[in-house]
């Protein structure tokens, strides 16, 4: 049972940071950025290369986060700001093109062979009947710490209040003298850096590989949509829900349904589980579980 919770927490921390950034930026620019998951992959590769160049692990992760954040900012300034003038659909297709370019460049530079991190092996910690390795503890701990810091920032500082105001009503926030462009830039940098961190931490266990971004695309979007795009902490809750379902679906014994002693769902359907949640969410709660806005029809 405890192992079940640990597995859920691990998967959730993979998804939470990336979904958080995606949702946060959506609140300001109002288009779903498909390239966001590729920023995570970029961060993973940068961390790998920095580490291969001799930078210690923590330093490599910090540098790679900063670089990914800057790249995200540059993409916003050079590409998406222009495309948004032609509407969100064009910007979304543009993010597709950016995603393809990132994958292409990384494939050209790093090759299609996965790059594993050679981390020192250590015996896993045991908590009752559950086990966690050092890396996993570090990942979950960092994610939790960041989430707490981010919530404090969002709800108890001026900057956080400005972000929320801008996300909920851009025209009014502009009229009240908030510098919308500057906030959008800061949020873009932040979301890219957080995505880079999420990708790097994910790569610590799976290695940096070319499908890292693509594999994250649908679970992360499912999490962000479940939480309501534009609601960063909702995205985290969505991520936890997705992680819980994925873990439950693979661990539950469906034997009682078929009258057989053992009937597990094939592991390959884990991904499909999260897409199914996404579809159900879109059918019944299309604007997220926590949606309270009144909409014009």
């Amino acid at each position: 049972m405890l192992q079940f919770l640990v597995d859920t927490a691990l998967r959730a921390s993979d998804l939470a940071l990336i979904a958080l950034g995606l949702s946060m930026v959506y609140g300001l620019v109002k288009f779903p950025n498909i390239a966001h998951v590729q920023y995570a992959m970029l961060g993973a590769y940068l961390t790998f290369f920095l580490r291969a160049a001799g930078v210690p692990l923590v330093g490599a992760i910090v540098l790679s986060c900063a670089a990914t954040g800057l790249f995200t900012l540059a993409m916003h300034l050079l590409v998406f700001r222009r495309l948004l003038r032609s509407g969100p659909a064009i910007a979304m297709i543009g993010s597709l093109a950016v995603a393809m370019l990132i994958v292409a460049v990384l494939q050209g530079v790093a090759g299609s062979f996965p790059r594993m991190f050679d981390l020192p092996l250590s015996a896993p910690h045991e908590f009752g009947d559950a086990r966690m390795t050092n890396t996993q503890l570090l990942t979950v701990g960092t994610t939790l710490l960041l989430l707490v810091l981010f919530s404090l920032l969002l709800f108890f500082t001026r900057a956080g209040r400005a972000m929320r105001a801008l996300a909920s009503n851009r025209a009014l926030a502009d009229a009240s003298g908030l510098n919308a462009e500057r906030i959008t830039r800061v949020v873009n940098f932040g979301s890219g850096a957080i995505a880079g961190l999420g990708g790097s931490m994910l790569a610590l266990s799976t290695g940096a590989h070319l499908n890292l971004g693509h594999d994250l695309l649908l679970p992360v979007f499912a999490a962000a949509i479940l939480g309501g795009l534009g609601n960063p902490l909702g995205a985290v809750a969505g991520g936890v829900l997705i992680a819980f379902t994925e873990t439950a679906v693979t661990n539950l014994n469906f034997g009682f349904l078929f009258g057989k002693p053992v009937a597990f769902l094939p592991v390959a359907y884990i991904g499909a589980a999260s897409f199914l949640i996404l579809l159900l969410a879109l059918l019944f709660k299309p604007y997220g579980l926590f949606d309270r806005q009144v909409r014009r029809v």
Partner: peptide, 14 residues
């Protein structure tokens, strides 16, 4: 429309 786009992507992947 953007939500629907993601939904179609999910259906194809399923």
């Amino acid at each position: 429309s953007d939500y629907w786009g993601i939904a179609t992507l999910a259906i194809a992947e399923i």
